[in-house]
Amino acid sequence: MIQLAFYGKGGIGKSTTVSNLAAALAEQGHRVVQIGCDPKADSTLNLCHGRRIPTVMDTCRKYNDDFKLSDVVVKSDIGVYCAETGGPVPGVGCAGRGVISALEKLKEKGLYEALSPDVVLYDVLGDVVCGGFAMPMRRQYAQTVYILTSGEAMSIYAAANIAMAVDRFKKRHYAGLGGFIVNRYHNEEDIAQAAHMADQFNSSIVGRLPDDEMVKKADQAHDIVLRMAKTSSLAEKYRQLADLIYRRECGAE
């Protein structure tokens, strides 16, 4: 089983990218689980045609422990199993602890045994603001972290912070840094900015996804590119990136 965590500045397009990668991996015949690790619980929204699925935290709040795995994991029509950790009501509680508890609860409910996934993708809130949001990097979870960034300064700054956290967690035997994905790039200058930052972490750019109107259209239709415009060149880019990442993680690249 391959487990990957995706981080990056809020609004950079993590959920869109992860959902399309998940769909591409599912297309290739892999059994894929996507887990949104964000109190907003919108990671899998477009995979599910805009339908909100019950989050683990909401379900725990309602039923305590009296629920089944199938109550919080939904299979989208494109074949990806979707789950959302959710979190506390905005303004109260502890969102980071919520991620920890939700991931533990999914494990306790048998997600990894029952679904036997080939690939698990953790789509994590914008930044590693506390221990809870580092949970997907922990030893028993993701093996590799991929960081999304654009060419904008604030995005690169956030990506560098996350890369520093990944580096600092090496001694804890956490996930390693797989590389950077440049999303919504406009020109080669954007790529160069990101590549410069990647160099500083002895890492590289593993994928580049252009700023494409198709993403916006799909989002407005509560859909993903791989379903709405499956023959588009952008869909093909997602497929190529998914394939590249999969092969890297299997040691074939």
Binding site: G131, M135, R138, Q140, K171, R172, H173, Y174
Partner: peptide
Amino acid sequence: YITGTDFEALAAMIED
């Protein structure tokens, strides 16, 4: 426990 300290990781760091 509430702050989510990763004891598995701390144990690994100490064992190292």
